[in-house]
Write a protein that binds this DNA or RNA. Structure first.
Lengths: 231, 231
DNA sequence: GTGTGCGAAACTGTATACAATTCTGTGGTC
DNA sequence: GACCACAGAATTGTATACAGTTTCGCACAC
């Protein structure tokens, strides 16, 4: 029953996941022939998938030289954080003024539900998934599909750095930091429930921008982890 | 010297222009064979370009059925207006707090310069270009390339409806409306020069959202113009 | 040792060929 | 007259072939 999807779709999703996780190193040139044998498809659907990923900002395309992994630079990450902030705060504004009570209740219920597993979650990737899910649901309250799709793309592109961030916090034994994530979410959710736009936007903006200062250091750390195979 | 660019690039730009102007009708199925003969390329680069346009939201792709022009619906346009608002207001916030005085001066100078031609411009498409250029320069003050690229894409996707709007205003003999565009720009620019974030954001938001109420009617009008060849 | 030029190999960009699916129109049945 | 079945045509999705660049390595000059 599961529509196995076209070859392009399968290849596209595989490559996107690899790009998200920087399985391709920043600036690395992609060898199409290697990828075809790795993914068992011909170059035609492969290149169609690659072209999509270029349009989505995961890869770049240099005429005559082929496809490259996107760069990983503090500037780039900062730009994406700003973009994320723009999208999320506006979504929040719209959501607070237009979402139904039941939608907001469902959103808050999700937070309640995940609150327990948040502290006990060992897998950092899973933890990040939960955080992203929270933010996507928050944004989803605005009912704007275009906005959500754009946000999703941005989140995917900063995911690696965020993961590095979590690893760092975990290593520093900063259990508190995870709780601070959670409490920040709680503050926003409460403000949403109270339909207090200013309070919610302010809290959310602070929550997102908090990470900005560390970005330069985080990108440096990211590079070091990229080229040292995880134990 | 003009790098003639690859075949894909040329085809891509042509198709994108056609999509922006709804030379493809909303929901229309695109026949690849016809396009190949029209554009004098084989299906391989054609499909690569089409895949890019899907990723950019100009087209959709139905498995087994090929490529279709995007829909044109009030909901879609409203979503894009909201997205535009999110991007522009955030860019404005950032720009006011980070742009150099000389950048702001250059921005204001551009407004001064175009102010004259604004009233006398006969070509509505050209008029719209000028408006878009103003907004892109405004956004450009924030120095965030990702944000600007996203905004550019959004603007392209709502361009047709905005053009219909201008046509309508022109037909109603509403010269005043063009002046109102201009004066709104002036208000924003003055607030930017004064580094008054709240005032600038409020004015810009109002300027953009003003069009929202008319959207349903505008989309209806757009359809009528799409299927009646321009005289 | 360093830099340069050349030629082969590798790779990209595009065209074409083929397989599988979808669409279309005709005929038949109720 | 409306609905369904089916065969042929058209169209999409993928693989392969080919031409034009680029890259890489090696030899050679300085």
């Amino acid at each position: 029953m599961t529509d196995k999807g076209s070859s392009v779709d399968r290849v596209y999703e595989t490559l996107r996941d690899m790009a998200i996780n920087f399985d391709f190193k920043p600036g690395e040139r992609l060898n199409e022939t290697h990828l075809t044998s790795k993914l068992n498809v011909s170059r035609t659907p492969l290149r169609e998938a690659l072209n999509r990923l270029v349009a989505e900002g995961f890869l770049t395309l240099a005429k005559g030289q082929g496809f490259f992994c996107r760069a990983l630079s503090p500037e780039q990450i900062l730009e994406l954080y700003q973009l994320r902030c723009a999208l999320e705060t506006e979504a929040l504004r719209i959501g607070i003024s237009t979402a139904g009570d039941e939608d907001i209740a469902a959103f808050c219920a999700y937070l309640d539900e995940t609150e327990k597993t948040y502290g006990t979650c060992e897998d950092l990737s899973e933890l990040l998934n939960m955080d992203e899910e929270f933010h996507m649901r928050l944004a989803g309250l605005c009912g704007n599909g275009e906005l959500c799709r754009t946000l999703k793309n941005v989140n995917e592109r900063i995911r690696y750095v965020r993961l590095v961030n979590l690893r760092q916090l975990r290593e520093n034994g900063a259990q508190a930091s995870e709780n601070s994530y959670l409490s920040a979410h709680r503050v926003v959710a409460d403000a949403v429930r109270a339909r207090d736009t200013d309070k919610a936007v302010t809290a959310l903006r602070a929550h997102i921008e908090r990470r900005r200062e560390q970005t330069i250091e985080l990108v440096r750390l990211a590079y070091s982890q990229l080229y040292v195979p995880a134990v």
